[in-house]
Write a protein that binds this DNA or RNA. Structure first.
Lengths: 94, 94
DNA sequence: TAAAAATACTCCATAGGTATTTTAT
DNA sequence: ATAAAATACCTATGGAGTATTTTTA
């Protein structure tokens, strides 16, 4: 079972969307440009959908990319909620 | 950056919750009992929260486990929505 | 030609398997 | 004694890095 939509890839994706560049996203994520490129490529390959149009330096979202960007923000936010929320339950009796 | 809440682990977790057994969950997921045990253990270690109380054969959710089970269903469902939804956008013009 | 992304490798972390041990009924 | 989870060990996949090549503004 391939991960496809895991937090790692989704975070790479939303970061590229926000900053508009693989290279800058890589800096922000403390990764290399190569790693970000792989992550996005992996998403596109396994979804079978192009997320960006590569127009030289400019990175532009496709229609599918725009859709995923919205869903990805939601999913990542849900994950964050879960991660912080569960700490509150750690010492409760069962 | 560790994944922690990725789809693979969350699916293992929700399956165990639903069927009430590591071994049966493993069958359903086409994995081994060992792999499921690792997945759950990984979740617990990285969240720092026990998800199940191991009472011999019976597997019982802790309070934290019950909380995560709800959130996990939501996250997995969001992922599924994203995965199927994006296909509809695949051939749209940008 | 200079920037940004893609790619070819290399390395290592870890997911997953088999076999075995532990544990509670 | 048995059924289920934990664990030790091994292998293989793929995530991430460096270095390089390709691309286009």
């Amino acid at each position: 079972m391939p991960p496809i939509l895991d937090s790692r890839r989704l975070l790479a994706f939303t970061t590229v969307v926000r900053v508009g560049s693989f290279t800058h996203a890589a800096r922000e994520l403390s990764l290399t440009q190569s790693a970000v490129s792989h992550a996005i490529r992996g998403l596109e390959d396994e979804l079978g959908v192009a997320l960006f149009t590569r127009e030289g330096r400019a990175v532009r979202l496709t229609a599918g990319g725009r859709y995923l960007a919205e869903r990805a923000e939601l999913i990542l936010s849900e994950m964050q909620t879960a991660r912080t929320g569960i700490q509150a339950w750690a010492r409760r009796p069962d």
